[in-house]
Nucleic acid binder design. Sequence first.
DNA 1: AACACGGCCAACCGCGCGACG
DNA 2: TCGTCGCGCGGTTGGCCGTGT
Length: 325
Amino acid sequence: MGHRCCTKQKVKRGLWSPEEDDKLVKHITQHGHGSWSSVPKLAGLQRCGKSCRLRWINYLRPDLKRGSFTAEEEQIIIDVHRILGNRWAQIAKHLPGRTDNEVKNFWNSCIKKKLISQGLDPKTHNLLSLRQRTSNKAACKYSSSSQSQQSSFTVFNISSQARDTSNTLMASAPVVTFPDNQTMAMQIPSSEPPNPNAAAYAQNLNESTIHPYASSLDTTIVSSSSPSSIQLHGLVNMLYENPCIWDANGIGETFEEPRVEGLQPAQQQQQDKEKICEIANGEFDIDASFEIEGGSFDLGVLESTLMSAAMYRDLSSMDDFGWNF
DNA sequence: AACACGGCCAACCGCGCGACG
DNA sequence: TCGTCGCGCGGTTGGCCGTGT
């Protein structure tokens, strides 16, 4: 068994020798890689092109940063992973000099365990349920009377009641539900956010041509059962002040429409339509996303972002939210 | 000293996607 | 439209190495 590209010729496998590295580096620095499939022949290597590419990208590239990950890099990985999941190549783009393979290995060997030991699910970044935690040998001590009563605890959920009747679905009135089933609505002020940069950022968000999902942030929600309110400009501030989770192109990549595993685009569209029907019927689920004028606003992302601020990021950032109870 | 075990990490594998004929 | 090819990505594997017994 071998790569399609290596079936024609005998290729060496396994670890690379210094001589092979030398040949590859010399060839690429002199000629560039061009077509990877032709590199082994031109460089005089008995390897397949794929193997050469991997070796270059993960080890020989001159711009690679060697050595262990810094705490800052680790935090970036956690932040971006929370948003993007196991998209290692995307995550690695936020870490100059690091490869997807390196990030992936670091995640699997270190960060994953660290999160678990903090009682967090490395996949969802939510708190593990009590059962998950107790079954986890590595789980750290976790004592909270209110939390221990929850079989599946999360700081809060955000759901929505959709009530738009037009074809264009407006994301209105997300409702924050706390573990004790206390419901509160979110009040998004019309005033400028305090951080001027964030103000510009938020303004950007409101340009639906750039960030179509922004319309959901532009909605004032009236409390249903509680006078409590969350001022979302705090969220905007926080997002703006943590640029590591956005790339140079801005928020678009990060907020790209969530995909459902194993679904073809057509199926995905169907799924979205069904989702919209659910919304119209008031059965909207926390994990769903809004589709707004060609874009989307993923409440799951919002939740996880809020979660992260509360859980293991700088807790002081929560001050920006202006929780008014 | 020898062995077992577990963690880490480089490399491999298979799949999906886009380009091209 | 279909098949082929090359590339990139995420998941997995296997070997090396440190540590414990």
